[in-house]
Design a protein around this nucleic acid. Structure first.
Length: 570
RNA sequence: GCUCUCGUAGCUCAGGGGAUAGAGCAUCCGCCUCCUAAGCGGAGGGUCGCACGUUCGAUUCGUGCCGGGAGCGCCA
């Protein structure tokens, strides 16, 4: 079991035995590390409820813990804190338990089937920086949920059915381009051109809308163009996501939801939810106690074409039938919060949510140093591939400054892994829901809270472990800590399972980043102060090697959840 | 205008009804004859946007205001 739950159980018991409510026994990580490792503040509210002296209540509960070998001290402090220190022997045994447990002491959870909708690229449109966060945050949430034991289906949810398809098809027609001869480079240029044109050229905009409708109605010409755009674009997208280390279980798109749309419309019709409004079909989703104005959700445009809300409903029905999930997560930027609010309400009215719980887990914007959405120097939208190239290029420069001898191949590998880690940790160390400032120099630095710092820590550990293997030195039993540096390192280990649980409940990869930096810092201090291979005494050396092995595994597991890879040298 | 969100050290950010509000960067000062110094230690730096309220206790909760960002039916 995770340590906080275990300690809380103990304290809850103690409170209950003293005649107070067990809920006062909540234990938290100490905010006064100089005084204790863990603390319980429950005596303060208990005192209020029972009109007694809080310090006396704390004393009653604390008295029951005396003699418990897990603690080196159980003290009370005014006005009513209970301060707990873990004993060295217990710390060593916790580390041993953890080393023997694949799941790092995580409690078993009820296994759920979760479909995660992330990535969300548009076919025929180049990926830009706005797609980065959905991809890496979504990927991390998938991996986290899987590590906790859930069945997770990651779906890219391609935007392959909307107006952008009509725009591209219309532009291809105007240029007299055959559907077969299109390349990814063409597409990257055609969409922005067509999109710009539609804004000034009303006739073209109408044509694009008509092509969109034709595509959705099954027009053979439009379908043929669409199919060739799809195959070219998907191959291109696959390459980009491979580079990012993001892998989806499914590559369904809005087009795959299309067959479900008529059924959704039927359901809406049968339930009497459809209403005509200004030539379009809408569903009223307002509730009596809404504070904000809640306009009806549009499900069919005046020209008969579907709109994204409709395809989202179709997708939900598709997912329900294909996967029968318990939960559906949508990882998109927070500007879509209102949209999902409408969709979820509509889905509920349509009876699609009897079993599925839908959640929108939004994220903030990636800004430049000026605090505005990140742009190229020219003020345009930054392509994701360009951003990746630049980061890897800069990482290579850093790698070339390294004192460690590396082959050209190793340098390339290191530059790629460092660059990706810089991007990912730079992003995910910030809380998901907040905007953040993208600063490549800062993210790529080896100093500070960066991906490369974490990677360097693991590389060092593995270097020592490799030397131990070469010398035939085996790891042994983890001994109780004798120095502050050892103790601090061992204290960090049991926090990991709690961090995983918190990251999961908040859907916040940043929690794992915090844990990683904390543990890496403690390890680097330990490493600086102690010799491992040349330390006095076989038992001590074997114990420290075992600690290194465990720290290596813990860091690797956490980094893998964040899809950060470790270079062999740096 | 309405709704949501953010405002914490010079900068980038954690935290969160309780004991002295934490990191990293930057600045300054130290540490490699020794397992990767892309490392480690130390110092300075804060009326937690403002006001009022709830509370034994508010930076944290509530209300109002100020300031930034976003959303508010035929793009996704």
């Amino acid at each position: 079991m995770n340590i906080l739950s275990a300690l809380t159980e103990t304290l809850s018991d103690a409170f209950a035995k003293c005649g107070y409510d067990a809920s006062y026994g909540v234990v938290t990580i100490s905010n006064r590390p100089d005084l204790c490792h863990y603390q319980c503040n429950g005596a303060l509210p208990a005192a209020k409820a029972h009109k007694k002296n809080p310090l006396a209540i704390a004393g009653e509960a604390a008295a029951l813990l005396q003699g418990d070998g897990r603690f080196s001290s159980v003290e009370t402090a005014p006005p009513g804190f209970i301060n707990l220190r873990l004993s060295d022997v217990y710390l060593a045994s916790l580390a041993k338990d953890m080393a023997a447990d694949e799941r790092l002491l995580l409690p078993l959870m009820e296994r759920k089937t979760i479909i995660v909708d992330y990535g969300g690229p548009n076919v025929a449109k180049p990926l830009h920086v706005g797609h980065l966060r959905s991809a890496i945050i979504g990927e991390s949430l998938c991996r986290l949920a899987r590590f906790l034991g859930h069945k997770v289906i990651g779906d890219i949810h391609l935007g392959d059915w909307g107006l952008q398809m009509g725009l591209v098809i219309a532009e291809m027609e105007e240029r007299g381009l055959g559907a077969d001869g299109v390349t990814a480079e063409d597409l990257n240029e055609i969409y922005p051109a067509a999109s710009a044109k539609a804004k000034t050229d009303a006739a073209f905009a109408e044509k694009a809308a008509a092509r969109t409708a034709a595509l959705q109605k099954g027009d053979p010409g439009a379908r043929k163009d669409w199919a060739s755009i799809m195959s070219v674009s998907k191959a291109d997208l696959r390459r980009s996501y491979d580079i990012l280390g993001v892998s989806f279980n499914c590559w369904y798109g809005e087009s795959d939801a299309d067959p479900y749309v008529p059924r959704v419309m039927n359901i809406l019709q049968e339930r009497g939810l459809l209403r005509e409004s200004e030539g379009a079909l809408v569903v009223d989703v307002a509730l009596p106690d809404d504070k904000e104005p809640m306009p009806p959700m549009l499900v069919q445009k005046t020209n008969g074409a579907d709109i994204y809300g409709t395809t989202d409903l179709g997708t939900l029905l598709q997912r329900k039938e294909l996967f029968d999930p318990d939960e559906a997560w949508y990882v998109t930027d927070n500007r879509q919060a209102f949209h999902f609010k409408q969709v979820f309400r509509c889905a509920k009215l349509a009876g699609l949510l009897e079993k599925i719980q839908c959640f929108h887990f939004p994220f903030g914007t990636m800004n430049g140093k000026d605090g505005k959405p990140y742009k190229t120097r020219e003020g345009g939208v930054m392509r994701l591939n360009d951003l990746i190239d630049t980061v890897v290029e800069n990482a290579l420069r850093k790698v070339n400054e390294s004192d460690i001898p590396m082959t050209g191949e190793e340098k390339t590998e290191a530059a790629y892994k460092l660059g990706m880690a810089a991007l990912k940790i730079g992003d995910m160390q910030n809380h998901r829901t907040k905007d953040y400032v993208f600063d490549m120099d800062r993210f790529l630095s080896s100093e500070g809270k960066t991906g490369p710092y974490l990677q360097y820590t693991v590389v060092r550990i593995r270097s020592v472990l490799a030397k131990a293997r070469e010398a035939g030195i085996a790891a042994g039993e983890i001994l109780p800590p004798e120095t502050d540096a050892e103790r601090d390192l061992l204290l960090a280990l049991p926090l990991v399972s709690d961090a995983l649980l918190r990251a999961f409940s908040d859907k916040a990869p940043s929690v794992l980043c915090e844990t990683l930096f904390d543990m890496a810092g403690r390890f680097n201090r330990f490493y600086f102060e102690h010799k491992i291979l040349q330390c006095p005494g076989h038992a001590l050396r074997a114990s420290r090697l075992a600690m290194l092995g465990l720290v290596d595994r813990v860091l690797t597991v956490l980094l893998d959840i964040l899809s950060v890879e470790i270079p062999s040298h740096m």
